[in-house]
Design a protein around this nucleic acid. Structure first.
Lengths: 250, 250
DNA sequence: AGATCGCTATTTGTCTGACTAAATAGCCAA
DNA sequence: TTGGCTATTTAGTCAGACAAATAGCGATCT
């Protein structure tokens, strides 16, 4: 009864190779992905804890801990007798790093991506302006290193993409505004998908470096307005590229 | 090495009267407040699960579920052998409604409030502009009703304050951008504290209604730029009022 | 002396099963 | 019809055992 071989179908939950090697984390991820991908609709009630944990071949306590994680992120709500139900979308913590990752586990909807870009378009230019006023030398150096790395590795490599994200991250950090900085995971997600979509197009994509350097130069020169405008242009072009790739007209 | 007798007052955790009536929620709140208020510093290691749960007079499973909640919000990180440690501030989900509530449980630091206002200053004018383009009649009606309620009840009443928050909420919702809308809890928190600080001053505070109506009119008239400017002014004045109240010079 | 390997103690992680408490639905009586 | 009681279902809590991971130490080898 204990270690029986899983029957196909039920009891499958992916244990991520690296992180999330704990069962509760894996279950949370599995359920989280199922919820954000629409496999469960808001208002739907999950099977009760006993049935669910049996189907997944895990103990009730591990399953419950997974549910607590989902509840903490606003995806579900539990009450005695009623059970655990999926909450309405407006209550989901869409900017939570994990929730975001679950969203991007399957291809995100165009509408969702559009929303994320709109957020970038609002936040990043303002952040660049603040960064131009407040950045310290360490942060400036980190930005420069990131761009150099991005330049030499190109966005075709994982290291280059990480450098890209690191640059945008550091800009946010240089605002010295902690609440603003927590948006970095959301913006990082959008940045990542810009790259993915750009590379999906066959043609050689536009070189992103000049735009990035303009932002950097303005921040280094402590020119807020210039930094805002440069970042506006950068994000605008990224949006364009992504939109072009997402609407395949050819 | 380990303290035999812990601090006096062991086993105390507030069970919120209304929501959070479950033990795991109460413990999460107690620990969450202790963490964000600086009672535990990032890097600190919590007592192990057995000791902690005994001190709180709860079962280990209830305690563990609380820890899972905190981990889901990025406040702590658990690993075997090492224990559960408080994560660095930059990983905290500062915009999560519960985390925000824990922050405001004790008086928030001026710096934190400033960050929140800066976020408002960035997000709300842009949101008002988008709302002017996209709002539907239902949302418009909700905004109008909120302002009327706010006008008649005044910000001295709980109902009036709720109406204020509802107005700002609806503007965010009218952007039609779900990721943007999730910022409403953060912005609502800032709005709430504007009122608290304003009322702390003895003198009769400035009437907030004209500014609000200007924003509404612009959104109703579908004029994005006008809406942006009106909201900019509204938030700017709110910031001023709060700053005046937070720095008592008289 | 230094590096390497493996052991062990400690801590979280998982499991089991029983019992408690809350919330609902449905019944029964007024 | 209504109002309240009760049965039932579900999450919530508890206790205790065992498993897995790993940081740190110590023995061993070079």
């Amino acid at each position: 009864m204990r270690k029986k071989k899983d029957k196909a179908g039920e009891g499958e939950f992916a244990r991520d190779g690296l992180a999330n090697s704990r069962i509760h984390g894996s279950i949370a991820r599995t359920l989280g992905v199922a919820i954000v991908s629409g496999q469960y609709a808001p208002g739907d009630i999950l099977n009760n804890e006993i049935d669910s944990s049996e189907q997944l071949h895990v103990s009730r306590s591990a399953y419950r801990e997974a549910i607590r994680i989902l509840a903490a992120k606003g995806l579900v709500e539990s009450r005695p007798k009623t059970g655990t139900r999926v909450t309405e979308r407006s209550r989901w913590s869409l900017l939570d790093p994990e929730v975001l990752a679950w969203f991007f586990e399957s291809e995100p909807s165009e509408e969702f991506l559009k929303g994320l870009y709109e957020l970038r378009m609002i936040v990043e230019p303002a952040a660049a302006a603040l960064a131009a006023e407040r950045r310290n030398d360490t942060q400036l150096e980190r930005m420069r290193k990131a761009l150099i790395q991005m330049e030499s590795q190109t966005l075709a490599t994982e290291a280059g993409q990480a450098a890209d994200r690191d640059f945008h991250d550091t800009v946010l950090e240089a605002t010295g505004n902690p609440p603003l900085f927590t948006l970095s995971s959301s913006i990082g997600a959008a940045v990542r998908w810009t790259t993915i979509f750009k590379q999906r197009k066959r043609e050689l994509p536009r070189d992103p470096m000049p735009d990035h350097w303009k932002v950097f130069d303005a921040i280094a020169a402590a020119r807020p307005d210039q930094a805002r405008q440069a970042m506006e242009k950068l994000v605008g072009l990224a949006l364009e590229d992504t939109r072009a790739a997402i609407e395949p007209k050819d």
